[in-house]
Amino acid sequence: MARSPVPNQTGKETGAARVYTTLRNEILTMRLAPGTPLDEVGLAERFDMSRSPVREALVRLSGDGLVTILANRSTVVTPMDFARVPEFLDALDLLQRVTTRLAALHRTAADLAKIQEKQKAYEKAIAASIKLRDSLPMIEANYDFHMTIARAGRNLYFADLYRRLLDEGRRMLHLHFQFKALDPDISVEEMARDHTDIVDAIERGDADKAEECAHRHAEQFKGRFMQFMDRNLTAGVPLTYNRRVSREKSTTTAE
């Protein structure tokens, strides 16, 4: 969903915008973990304002898919269903291929200029994210880049479906960046290479190559994210069992 412009005409609207921006950033960077309860009273105290602008901010976040308003009117940070991550990644791959292919076929000169502008902005955002170890600049610039391509494809249905996937995947992209940031050789060039190849194919109007680059980009994200998942799922597994077995074998041999 396209982000609404931040209103600033009244104190109430400014307060709601501040709550929205702060909570949104904390959710995207996982400082507010999936499933965390969001209490209106507690948030009103935290931001030193009434519950009305807090409620307005939560409604906007719900529209972004970042919070879920439950039947009992309580609100939580939208959970992440890691069991369905493979399904999400397959869908992302398909929609990314379709929207990128259509952009190569239907983009105008004005569309291409916007795509190139968003690619340059993405490279600057990557540099900022690497320097600050903050995923937010990269998350926002990545969204803008891919949605600019989707709109250039001239199919509103595909673009809307793709937008929903990109919105849902923002927190996954944060985790992906956190994993990549562990690499001491991380660089802007390496992180932006797939985007550069996509732009080049769209510029040349090569639909097959554009789709191929989009697929490779999705596959690399899938591979890195699954590596992150494997790293974190196994990180807490105790390794004392093997040492105990080794001692038992040594005792048996001595006897």
Rank of each mutant, 00 (worst) to 15 (best):
M1H: 05
M1R: 07
R3A: 10
P5E: 12
P5C: 09
V6R: 15
T10A: 09
G11S: 12
T14W: 10
A17T: 02
R18G: 00
T21L: 15
L23V: 08
R24K: 14
E26I: 00
L28Q: 08
R31K: 15
R31N: 12
R31S: 09
R31L: 12
L32E: 00
P34T: 02
G35Y: 05
P37S: 10
L38G: 01
L38P: 01
V41L: 14
G42M: 14
A44I: 00
R46N: 11
F47K: 05
F47N: 06
D48W: 07
S50D: 15
P53M: 10
V54R: 00
V54H: 00
R55Y: 10
E56W: 09
E56D: 15
T68M: 12
V77S: 00
D81G: 04
F82A: 07
A83W: 11
P86L: 02
L89T: 04
D90G: 08
R97I: 11
R107D: 03
T108Q: 00
Q116Y: 03
E117S: 13
A121R: 04
E123W: 01
I130G: 03
N142C: 08
Y143F: 11
A152E: 02
N155L: 05
F158G: 01
L161K: 10
R163H: 05
L166M: 11
D167P: 04
R170H: 04
L173H: 08
H176Y: 10
F179C: 08
L182V: 09
I186N: 07
E189G: 08
E189H: 05
A192N: 05
R193W: 05
D194S: 13
D194Y: 12
D194E: 15
E203G: 06
G205F: 04
G205W: 03
G205M: 01
D206I: 02
D206G: 02
A210L: 01
E212I: 09
F225I: 12
F228H: 06
M229E: 01
N232H: 09
T234C: 06
T240M: 12
T240V: 12
K249Q: 14
T252H: 14
T253H: 15
